[in-house]
C-alpha cells in the first residue's frame, strides 16, 4: 500500500483531474468571485473612457491554444465597450489571432448592433511587433492604411482622427506571448505615454508585476480567474465564470496530491531515497 501511495500511477491522477474538470462543468457549481484591484483598474479605465465616448485599441496577441483563457477577456471587454458606447479598434501581432478576434467582434457586434467602421473596426495582422508599434506611434494610418475589409483608415469615422497611438484613450493588449514587454511597453507606452493595460495567460501574469509597479501598465487581467473577475464586473457571467468551479476543483486535487506525495515521502520515502 505504501509503495502504491508513494508512486501513484499517473493514469490514476489523470482520472482525478478529468473528473475534477467534468463534474463541476456539468453541475451548477458556483463560487463567489471577487475582482482584484488590477482587474478593477482596467474596468474603471474603460468606464472613464466611456464618459467621453472615447476610443480604445485592443491588440489580440494570442492563438487558439490560449483561446480558453483569453477569449473570455476579449468578449467581456468588448461587451463593456459596446454597452457603454466606447469605440474599439482591433489589431493583431499574432497571425492566428485574426480568426479569434473576428469571432469576438462578430459576436459582440451582433449582440449590441454595433456597426463596423463606426463603432468598431478590425485592422488584422501585421508583421513587425516592436517596429509596428513604433510605426503606429509615428503614423497610425501609415502603419495600418486599411482595415480587413479594405476600407481606408483615413476615411473610416472611427479612425480618421487617429494619427498616433497617443490619440487612443486606452490601449489593451490581450497576450499569450511577450508582446506587452517586448513590443508595447518599450516601443509604445514608454515612448508615447498612453494608458496601457494587459490581459494575459495565468502563466505570464507574474512576469507583468514589475510593469504594474512602475506604472507602465495600469491594470492586469491574469488567466481564466482574471477573465471571470472581469465577467463579474460587466455583470455577465460567461465561459470564464463557468470554468471557475472546474479550475478550483483541479487546483484542490493537485494540492491534495502534492500533500499526499510529501506525506508519503516523509513517512517512507526518505528511508528509500525518495519516490521514483
Amino acid at each position: 500500500m505504501k509503495d502504491f501511495l508513494l508512486n501513484i500511477d499517473r493514469r490514476i491522477i489523470f482520472v482525478f483531474v478529468a473528473l475534477g474538470v467534468i463534474i463541476p462543468s456539468l453541475t451548477a457549481f458556483k463560487l463567489p468571485i471577487k475582482p482584484t484591484p488590477y482587474v478593477q483598474a482596467i474596468y474603471n479605465t474603460v468606464e472613464e473612457v466611456a464618459k467621453n465616448k472615447g476610443t480604445i485599441l485592443i491588440s489580440f496577441d494570442y492563438g487558439p491554444g490560449s483561446d480558453a483563457e483569453i477569449q473570455p477577456m476579449a468578449l467581456a471587454i468588448l461587451r463593456q465597450c459596446f454597452r457603454k458606447g466606447v469605440k474599439v479598434v482591433g489589431m493583431c501581432h499574432w497571425p492566428d489571432a485574426v480568426g479569434l478576434a473576428e469571432r469576438a467582434f462578430a459576436e459582440m457586434a451582433a449582440e449590441f448592433s454595433a456597426k463596423s467602421g463606426v463603432d468598431y473596426t478590425f485592422l488584422g495582422y501585421k508583421t513587425g511587433a516592436g517596429t509596428l508599434v513604433l510605426g503606429m506611434g509615428q503614423d497610425f494610418q501609415g502603419a495600418f492604411s486599411q482595415d480587413t475589409q479594405g476600407n481606408n483608415t483615413a476615411d473610416l469615422p472611427i479612425t480618421r482622427n487617429i494619427r498616433s497611438l497617443t490619440d487612443f484613450d486606452y490601449v489593451i493588449a490581450l497576450a499569450a506571448g511577450n508582446t506587452p514587454e517586448q513590443a508595447w511597453i518599450p516601443f509604445g507606452q514608454e515612448r508615447y505615454k498612453f494608458k496601457f493595460g494587459v490581459g494575459c495567460t495565468a502563466v505570464m501574469a507574474p512576469d507583468q508585476y514589475p510593469y504594474l509597479q512602475s506604472g507602465q501598465m495600469n491594470g492586469l487581467i491574469g488567466g481564466l480567474a482574471g477573465a471571470a473577475e472581469y465577467e463579474t464586473l460587466v455583470n455577465k457571467p460567461g465561459k470564464a465564470t463557468g470554468g471557475m468551479g472546474a479550475q478550483s476543483t483541479v487546483h484542490l486535487i493537485i494540492i491534495l496530491f502534492i500533500i499526499l506525495g510529501n506525506a508519503m515521502y516523509f513517512l517512507y520515502g526518505r528511508q528509500k531515497g525518495g519516490a521514483q
Partner: peptide
C-alpha cells in the same frame, strides 16, 4: 490547439505530485 494545451493540466498534476517534494 486547445486540446494540446489542455493536456498540459494532466501532465502538470502528475509532475507536481512526483517532483514537488519538500526535500
Amino acid at each position: 490547439d486547445a486540446t494540446m494545451f489542455s493536456i498540459l493540466a494532466f501532465f502538470i498534476a502528475s509532475a507536481a505530485y512526483r517532483t514537488f517534494r519538500a526535500r
